[in-house]
Simulated scan of single mutants.
Amino acid sequence: MVHHTIDGEATTARRLRFGIVLLPNFTLTAFSGFVDLLRLASDEGDMSRPVRCSWTIVGENLVPVRASCGIQITPWTTFDEAQAFDYVVIVGGLLHSGPPASDATLAFIRAMAETPATLVGLCTGAFALARAGVMNGYRICVSWFHYWDFVERFPQVDERDLVADRLFVIDRRRITCSGGRASIDVAAAILLRHVEATIVRKALRILLVDDAQKGNAPQPHPPGLEPATHPKVRRAILLMEQHVGEPLSLPDLADRLDVSVRQLERLFTTETGKSPGAFARQIRIRMASWLLTSSDRTVADIASSCGFSDASHLGREFRKEFGASPNEYRATRLPNTHEALLGTPEPGARLPDEYVEAPVRQLGTP
Results as ranks from 00 to 15, higher is better:
residue 1 M to R: 06
residue 3 H to G: 11
residue 7 D to G: 08
residue 12 T to Q: 13
residue 20 I to Q: 00
residue 25 N to I: 01
residue 27 T to A: 10
residue 29 T to V: 12
residue 33 G to I: 02
residue 34 F to Q: 01
residue 34 F to C: 03
residue 35 V to C: 09
residue 37 L to H: 02
residue 50 P to M: 02
residue 51 V to I: 14
residue 56 T to G: 02
residue 61 N to D: 15
residue 72 Q to E: 15
residue 73 I to T: 12
residue 75 P to L: 01
residue 78 T to H: 02
residue 83 Q to W: 03
residue 85 F to G: 03
residue 88 V to G: 03
residue 88 V to P: 02
residue 90 I to Y: 02
residue 90 I to E: 01
residue 92 G to S: 08
residue 93 G to S: 06
residue 94 L to Q: 11
residue 96 H to C: 03
residue 97 S to C: 08
residue 105 T to H: 01
residue 107 A to V: 05
residue 111 A to G: 08
residue 114 E to K: 12
residue 123 C to M: 07
residue 128 A to M: 04
residue 130 A to S: 14
residue 131 R to K: 11
residue 132 A to S: 09
residue 136 N to A: 15
residue 137 G to R: 08
residue 138 Y to A: 12
residue 141 C to D: 06
residue 144 W to S: 12
residue 145 F to Y: 11
residue 146 H to Q: 11
residue 146 H to R: 09
residue 150 F to A: 07
residue 153 R to M: 09
residue 162 L to E: 09
residue 163 V to S: 05
residue 164 A to G: 15
residue 167 L to V: 10
residue 168 F to E: 05
residue 169 V to M: 06
residue 170 I to E: 12
residue 171 D to Y: 07
residue 174 R to T: 07
residue 175 I to T: 09
residue 178 S to H: 00
residue 180 G to W: 02
residue 188 A to H: 04
residue 191 L to T: 07
residue 196 E to K: 11
residue 196 E to Q: 14
residue 205 R to H: 14
residue 208 L to M: 11
residue 211 D to L: 08
residue 215 G to M: 09
residue 216 N to T: 10
residue 220 P to C: 09
residue 223 P to F: 00
residue 224 G to F: 05
residue 228 A to Q: 04
residue 229 T to L: 13
residue 233 V to K: 01
residue 234 R to N: 05
residue 235 R to V: 04
residue 235 R to M: 13
residue 243 H to I: 00
residue 243 H to R: 09
residue 243 H to K: 00
residue 243 H to S: 13
residue 244 V to P: 05
residue 246 E to G: 12
residue 248 L to M: 14
residue 250 L to R: 05
residue 253 L to D: 04
residue 258 D to Q: 13
residue 259 V to I: 14
residue 264 L to H: 06
residue 266 R to Q: 12
residue 266 R to H: 10
residue 276 P to T: 02
residue 278 A to P: 04
residue 279 F to Y: 14
residue 282 Q to V: 00
residue 283 I to Y: 03
residue 283 I to K: 02
residue 288 A to K: 03
residue 296 D to I: 00
residue 300 A to M: 05
residue 302 I to V: 13
residue 310 D to E: 09
residue 310 D to G: 14
residue 311 A to P: 05
residue 316 R to M: 12
residue 317 E to I: 06
residue 317 E to Y: 03
residue 324 A to D: 05
residue 325 S to M: 07
residue 326 P to S: 08
residue 327 N to H: 10
residue 337 T to Y: 09
residue 339 E to N: 15
residue 339 E to A: 15
residue 348 G to D: 11
residue 349 A to I: 05
residue 353 D to H: 03
residue 354 E to G: 05
residue 355 Y to M: 09
residue 357 E to G: 02
residue 366 P to F: 08
